[in-house]
Design a binder for these strands. Structure first.
Lengths: 339, 339
DNA sequence: CGTGCCAATGAAAGCGCTTTCAAAGCCTCG
DNA sequence: CGAGGCTTTGAAAGCGCTTTCATTGGCACG
């Protein structure tokens, strides 16, 4: 595996051909294990390639084959463990399917749309997660016929979508909390910021309404622990103080726990807190939350995408897939339910 | 931004040229904002391109330009928040530098070497993290002249390396724990599994030796919470029981905390536990740990790589960079030091 | 020994761009 | 009115592969 000769940059198939004394066609065939070459020739070519430390240019190959053998995933951010898990699930499946993986976090950047279009030109298909790019960009990419899957995002025209279940579990959470006797609710998170938050808030609101409990207005808040802490501190200073703060995700909830501690309040005796996602930290913070199949979301999106890519020319099916979630009860919502 | 005409697949520059009534050279120039085109021509070309929903093929462009405008990062795994943070830092900087990002987790797969070589053919430079691939693969890639940066990995020939500081902080941790009066140490983690673990163990051992405390043999253990839990359970069943379990990372330490709880032991009164990384969960578990500049590690690697790419033809400098780490004291190592 | 076939190989045409070099058109100025 | 210099555009040559199609040579068979 060592480079015997001068490992100059950009060794091409022509140099291998010359060294092996064959044509480039034969080199290509030999290195791709075609049946059309004698074992002896194959060996000679292999040897020449090894001596030159030759790796075929992926560009040349892709251009000739008309495919990238790569797919991409776009997500709003990688801060916090949630997205990382999704990307992990995606990468793992994509790798098994023999595809390279491109990633792009948009971070709400102004040039996000351009970056996503650029990615679209590099891949055989892509997954777009959450509200990372504008609808018209999604539509435009879809219009090119590029295989596309939306993840945790409201459907756009007839593009396939994969999402976690939000409504049912949110109602269940509402019922559970009402069962604790709580009546003064607060909701931390901006339904306009992400489709998932909208779904969670809607489910919670529906559950509360059913139980005859007043539905709180959502308190918008960035998706970071620190933002959750300060927003929760504000809520806890209100009179009457909310009896329970339902947070749109675990990071906010962890921030709320911190704020409660700083305000000298006990959880759950003085104020209950719940989250969403079931991050590792939630377990150690005793946080009641809703477990998301994060890795499975990424993996499922990768599989759907692969199906589309293999099924070219793709007819968009507009398939909607919803993955189940699970209420995880811990101490932060009330002690008598502790498991 | 809508597609006016039939959005057939694979619109090429030739069709745009025909529609705009110019040559492909002019199309290329117009779309790339070259000075060599009249504003009127540019507009005509733009309009034609928009009508056809044309996006230039990245393959054609890269092949012609001789560059991918992409770089890659290879890491052992994405499980757990540590690697995710590193990748995040990497992606962010790479994006700012206008580069696409490819990722690959090797998961200890048998075909990891092939996958990494495949990535090498797709990028203008890459970062290899930890013990994700064999040394000879690294050497082989380096031999092609591809810009390369190693992250948290022992140097290979004269390839640039970026690493967190392990030794000094590990000694500091040792001194601190000895200061608590602890004498029976245990170390959870396999120094052979990752260069960082080796460095941490070595530093700890050096610190203990200086203090005249017996150095424990490391207890190998996979990098997962569950593995940490069961390994720690085994340790806690030993007689005499170790007074403190130093874990190679936070996930193991969180597992150890779980095991202690299950064994009915109080932390830190009966047994102290420390970790490494300062994950979000560590904060809520009260875990004493060593904070790693994870995001900064990724960002730094991205910058070093970019420097190499820009400086082609690259002369390898073999630069070694070490990023500082910080001891974070919480309750799990002993109450009197709580901050 | 000649004919016909099959297996192995080579020549060359793309794949979709960028860029060099040449040509064409238009001004300006003598 | 013609020469020379710009500016703008086009033709064509790659970039490094894969693959089709043609060619070559060897062998079996008549």
């Amino acid at each position: 595996m060592k480079a015997l000769s001068k490992p100059r940059e950009g060794v091409t198939i022509y140099e291998v051909a010359k060294r092996a004394g064959v044509s480039i066609a034969t080199v290509s065939r030999a290195l791709r294990d075609s049946e059309l070459v004698t074992p002896q020739t194959r060996e000679r070519v292999r040897a020449a390639a090894a001596e030159l430390n030759f790796t075929p240019s992926r560009l040349g190959r892709s251009l000739a084959e008309g495919r990238h053998a790569a797919n991409g995933i776009v997500f709003p951010d990688l801060v916090g463990p949630y997205y990382a898990e999704v990307v992990l699930g995606y990468e793992q499946v994509a790798a098994e399917l023999g595809r390279s993986v491109l990633i792009r976090a948009t971070h709400g950047r102004a040039d996000a749309d351009a970056q996503v279009l650029e990615m679209a030109a590099r891949v055989d298909g892509m997954v777009i997660m959450g509200r990372s790019v504008a609808d018209d960009v999604v539509a435009r990419i879809a219009a090119t016929g590029l295989p596309l899957v939306l993840l945790s995002r409201d459907p756009v025209s007839d593009v396939d979508t994969v999402r976690p279940e939000n409504d049912t579990t949110a109602r269940e959470l509402a019922r559970h909390l009402v069962g604790h006797g709580y009546r003064r609710f607060a909701f931390l998170g901006d339904p306009a910021a992400a489709p998932d938050v909208a779904g969670r808030y809607a489910g919670l609101a529906a559950g509360l309404k059913e139980a005859g409990v007043r539905v709180p207005d959502p308190v918008p808040c960035a998706f970071e622990l620190e933002a959750g802490r300060s927003a929760a501190a504000g809520l806890l200073a209100c009179r009457p103080r909310p009896r329970v703060i339902v947070c749109a995700n675990d990071e906010l909830a962890l921030g709320a726990l911190t704020a409660a501690g700083e305000a000298g309040l006990r959880v759950p005796q003085d104020v209950a807190v719940t989250g969403w996602d079931d991050l590792m930290a939630a377990r150690f913070a005793g946080l009641t939350t809703v477990r998301q199949p994060m890795r499975e979301l990424g993996a499922t999106a990768a599989r759907r995408l692969h199906e589309q890519i293999e099924a070219r020319p793709a007819k968009r099916t507009g398939r909607q897939e919803t993955l189940p979630t699970e209420l995880v009860l811990r101490t932060s919502c009330g002690t008598h339910t502790m498991g």
